[in-house]
């Protein structure tokens, strides 16, 4: 991975103005993503994990410019996406796709499956005629495990797992370089979830895709990702290789997440060491001073309230970084 990264995210911030009750009070910023930096290599999967409200979906959408950024840059294949106009951005979307959580809600109920998957082709490859489009759609349906005979059916005729396959086919039809997967398996049953995860990893291998894999489920993230980014209240707590994170989590929040994830093995699950943290996420409108995690942190000390811990190696030599004054 010595070549230049496919995606560089540099100090990205997304703040939403929230109106205040007073008639003349200025809106306050809700810092959904607050200074996030990372890189993503070609063919790499970076997992983004965190609890609801930590800003993980906002981060994915801001990179794709589906929502405006407040500050910072996202550089894709050497080009600064955040500096492009809407018109300049449009052709770049061919390489940047997204898969959503709710597979049925993200498909237009009045379009046939064939039309849904072909729509990106009509936008970006208008030179193709109907027969060529249909051939490409059939091939892609085959590739994601849908029978091309179903090309004229409507989304409601499909189960959740099949609908997610349609979403994946739509994202893959232009052979993009990067796909943001926003909780792609959270709405699916366990047995179907494994099918979709296997499909995504096959596609990644065959097409050299980069994936930004957003999920609240640490077990799933650990399974698919090369590296994992742990997000809390819009800030990175820890970023490390998956193996390292598993073996030696350094941030107390990462340790809490790892110990809270249930293991399907009675003896391991009952004997494991549990690190419990309080369950009240502070309001993102009024985040704690210093380290944002300190109100739930078992190790919080005086220093944590005054000084924001920088994201740094702190003794690690494998490129992993942690934002904690007292890492393990």
């Amino acid at each position: 991975m010595s070549e230049a990264p496919l995606l560089i995210v540099d100090d990205l911030k997304v703040h939403f103005p929230v109106p205040q009750p007073g008639l003349f009070s200025a809106p306050r910023p809700l810092k959904a993503v607050d200074g996030v930096s990372f890189t993503l290599a070609s063919g790499e999967t970076l997992g983004v994990v965190g609890e609801s409200g930590c800003g993980k979906s906002t981060l994915g959408r801001a990179i794709l410019r589906l929502i405006p950024t407040t500050a910072g840059r996202a550089i894709f294949a050497g080009e600064e996406l955040t500096a492009l106009s809407e018109a300049q951005m449009r052709p770049r979307r061919r390489d940047l796709q997204i898969i959503f959580q709710d597979p049925l809600a993200s498909l237009d109920p009045r379009m046939t499956v064939g039309d849904i998957i072909a729509e990106p082709l009509q936008s970006f490859l208008p030179e193709l005629d109907a027969a060529q489009r249909r051939a490409k759609v059939s091939a892609m349906m085959n590739r994601v495990g849908l029978s091309p005979q179903m090309i004229s059916r409507y989304p409601h005729e499909f189960s959740g797992g099949q609908a997610q396959r349609i979403g994946i086919a739509r994202a893959m039809i232009l052979e993009p370089k990067l796909i943001v997967c926003d909780e792609p398996v959270s709405a699916l049953d366990v047995s179907i979830r494994a099918q979709i995860l296997n499909l995504l990893s096959d596609l990644q291998r065959d097409f050299g895709l980069s994936l930004l894999f957003i999920s609240h489920d640490l077990a799933v993230v650990r399974h698919v990702s090369h590296r994992v980014l742990v997000l809390y209240l819009g800030k990175i707590m820890e970023l490390a290789e998956t193996e390292t994170l598993n073996r030696r989590p350094r941030h107390p929040y990462t340790r809490a997440l790892l110990s809270a994830a249930p293991i399907p093995d009675p003896s391991l699950e009952r004997d494991k060491e549990r690190l419990m943290i309080g369950d009240d996420l502070p309001s993102p409108l009024d985040p704690p001073s210093g380290c944002v995690f300190r109100t739930r942190c078992p190790k919080a000390a005086e220093k944590c309230a005054h000084e924001v811990p920088a994201l740094a190696a702190r003794g690690a030599e494998d490129g992993s970084v942690v934002a904690c004054h007292f890492p393990d």
């Binding site: 366990v190 296997n198 650990r222 399974h223 998956t242 598993n246 293991i263």
Partner: peptide, 24 residues
């Protein structure tokens, strides 16, 4: 057995999960 092997485990990263084919 299929359910148990479809769940990603921390000790078995990467590799294909043994999914249960088909639909209920």
């Amino acid at each position: 057995r299929g359910l148990l092997s479809s769940v990603p485990r921390p000790d078995q990263r990467g590799g294909a999960l043994t999914a249960i084919a088909g639909q209920p």
